[in-house]
Design a protein around this nucleic acid. Sequence first.
RNA 1: GCGCCUAUAGCUCAGAGGAUAGAGCACUGGCCUCCGGAGCCAGGAGCGCAGGUUCGAGUCCUGCUAGGCGCACCA
Length: 584
Amino acid sequence: MRTTAQPIFSPVGFLRGSSFILGGSRMDIASAQREKLHRLIREAVDKAAASGELTFTEIPEFVLETPKDPNHGDFASNVALVSAKAARKSPLEVASILVKYIPVGGFITKVEVAGPGFINFFLSQEWLGDILRAVELQGENYGASNYGQGERVLLEFVSANPVGPLNVVNARAAAVGDTLARLLRACGYGVGTEFYVNDAGNQADVFARSLIARCRQLIDPDYPFPEEGYPGDYVIDLAKRLLVEKPEVLELPEEEQLAFCKRWGTDQMVAGQAADLRGYGVEFDLWFRERDLHAQGRLEELIEFFRDKGHLYEEDGALWFRSTTFGDDKDRVLIKSDGAYTYVTADIAYHHDKLKRGYTKLIDILGPDHHGYIGRMKAAVQALGYGEDTLEVLILQYVALLRDGKPVKMSKRAGEFVTMRELVDEVGRDAARFFFLMRSLESHLDFDLDLAVEQSSENPVFYVQYAHARICSILRQAEEAGIGVPTTAEVDLSLLTEEAEINLIKKMGELPEEILLAATLREPHRIARYALDLAGIFHSFYTHCHVLGEEAPLRDARLVLVKCVQTVLRRSLELLGISAPEQM
RNA sequence: GCGCCUAUAGCUCAGAGGAUAGAGCACUGGCCUCCGGAGCCAGGAGCGCAGGUUCGAGUCCUGCUAGGCGCACCA
């Protein structure tokens, strides 16, 4: 069973190998430099092979990375390191042979062999200008690509039961799923987002009975509350509203009453969840109702489909799906001996529906308590006739809220837990999203409530937003002084020589690649960290370099630079679903 | 018992098999005649344990240890 996140395509061959191709009509210029270097390296390998100096059966995949240490050049490749074995020479020997075939000139000012056998490339200033021109040209689309070529991906996330308010893990899932959707769209995928509403199962029945009991208690305080009922106060509030909206509900025959409360109650919960999510910046393309699957006979269809394929058998009065054929730990019951469908039956029918609607990649984002679910669903998708990797399940880990450095106690059984709405009310939508997106999915994250509301540089979300607000302030004052922001073509970009300026430009050049990595590796936290890095470099620039007040040529070049940083910061924040305030 | 996640600086966390393992916080000391000090600059310390694969392992494999979570004819 494969339980870790599987990229849609392995990005390895794509990013590190020979073909860095961004589709669409406008190729990203900064990445075009990278592509040129890739090609030059491959040509050098071919020439070295032709001359007999190197012998390969095939060229291994290699990395072209931006070194942390600027002394290692603008780009560095490990091609010699990874191909040393195939060449039966030391990495240093391979590297020194290859550099002979890499022509210096044009945008390449120097090529050298360093360390254990890296080939370091030093580029002319011109390529930095290319980055700024790319940002200017592409603006709000900077970093987008057509890598996905329209492949249809369905992201399902949150999918909380409609029996209570959303919790903090739901909030984490919402932030991660929404940003992943934005990232995949930016990479040219045809993305759909869905929330599966589990409104037909036992839990919905229990919820309906809890609601009825609360209604009766409002009339007769001694009326007993079901032992396994939902204890939260929100059920009482809902009961009050129900008695106002439909006072005759308690007069209905029991079965009708239950059916009504189940439908009405879950609808109310769904409406509340949708409103909370909207306030959090998350809108779903579709809220898919489990009850529709039942009403449309889709479960029966699924059973017939599986029966035809021979995936079913009966035992102990129940109908079983032989999921072990497809690598599941054990077979699963689809119809219980009492004739009722199990939860998994409906969920398989739902996934079948997604596939029939033309999605070729399904991504489910689930909480940590559902990891045991992966095997059976991957088995189901295969039994439906699709490849093992069609379904990809991302498991989020738990969230611990910290106040005064101590965990906030939560008890689901007692109905005491912090809801997503409370969290967002307390720390704000931007801080909540950023804190969830800062960490990798699999981290068990500590959410520091005190830090999230702090208005200081210690609070990462403020740190990033403040950088944006500072830029806006500069541009505003320029405008007030009658100084327009020029275009890259109108200024002398070679005046940007300060370390902070160079670092800013290089960092901006990394965004397209970061977006691609974040999307394909399912690592949205890369973008949050990217935004923090870029903001940090900007703050340093701000302290060391002035914009307004400098001589016109330098001032104008810096205005262009600052304008570009604004675009890139805005773009990063937009991908995170976080606002970019002009003033704070 | 089986499965999943985690273990990196005092704390919270990054780290695409590669160069000297990085940030932030905390602690200490500096920086405002100047575009927003909600900022900047400078200082110490670390990969849970044991093997293995590799030219090279925080990263991959195996076995331990510790913490979190899950193992239904519940959803």
